[in-house]
Amino acid sequence: MKFLVDECLSPALVNRLQTAGYQATHVTHLNKSGWSDQALMAVILDADWTFITGNAFDFRGPAGTPGSSGGYSGAKIHAGLICLNRPYNDSRRIQLELLEEALSEINELEGDLVNQVLEVTLHDDDTIEATVYGLPT
């Protein structure tokens, strides 16, 4: 798997992914900062990136109906989407904590995330929940 980290997340996530043995880069490292979601989706799909974002709605659509809208709504096949759902006033530490949970889930899957979404959510009571589901469904 190779990962592309969205510009809304810390570049420190790239370092952690590389330490774990994955190929990873950040949107800013590709000089794609400020690109529209649609333009970024073309890059993600063409290069088979597993995309990591903090903007779940923009890419998977509404939580209740994933795939009904958002960047991945028209994708027939993709390398996977990881949504780190956290408060907007989060810290790099929180992002790294959620990434650790995502890496743990990926290890349990013993494969890849082709046509799947991995959502890692930090709840108000500080518990972390991970959910994996297919997209397209």
Rank of each mutant, 00 (worst) to 15 (best):
A75I: 02
V27W: 05
R92H: 12
A39Q: 12
G134R: 12
T127R: 13
G61E: 05
N115Y: 07
I106A: 04
D46W: 03
S69E: 01
A47M: 07
L4G: 01
Q38S: 03
A102E: 08
V132R: 12
T137V: 13
T28D: 10
S91I: 03
S10E: 12
D90C: 15
G67W: 01
Y72I: 00
L96V: 06
A79T: 10
L81H: 03
G74T: 02
A12D: 12
L122S: 09
G64Y: 08
V27A: 03
N15Y: 13
A63K: 13
I44K: 01
V27I: 06
T28M: 10
I52R: 06
G61D: 03
G34M: 04
V14P: 06
D6K: 05
Q38R: 07
V14T: 13
T25Q: 02
V43T: 14
K76C: 03
R16S: 08
E101Y: 11
D37E: 05
V43S: 04
D6L: 07
L122V: 04
M41Y: 00
L96Y: 07
R93Y: 08
V120S: 08
A47G: 01
T53C: 04
V5L: 07
S69Y: 00
I77R: 14
Y72V: 02
T25W: 00
G71I: 02
R92I: 15
S36E: 11
I94Q: 09
R92D: 14
E100K: 15
E7Y: 05
S33K: 15
A24M: 09
S69N: 00
L17R: 09
R16D: 10
A12F: 12
Y22I: 08
R16I: 11
D6P: 01
I52K: 01
L84Q: 09
E110N: 15
H26W: 13
F59M: 07
A63M: 11
I82K: 06
Q23E: 14
T131S: 14
S73D: 05
P136M: 03
L135R: 02
F51Y: 11
Y72Q: 02
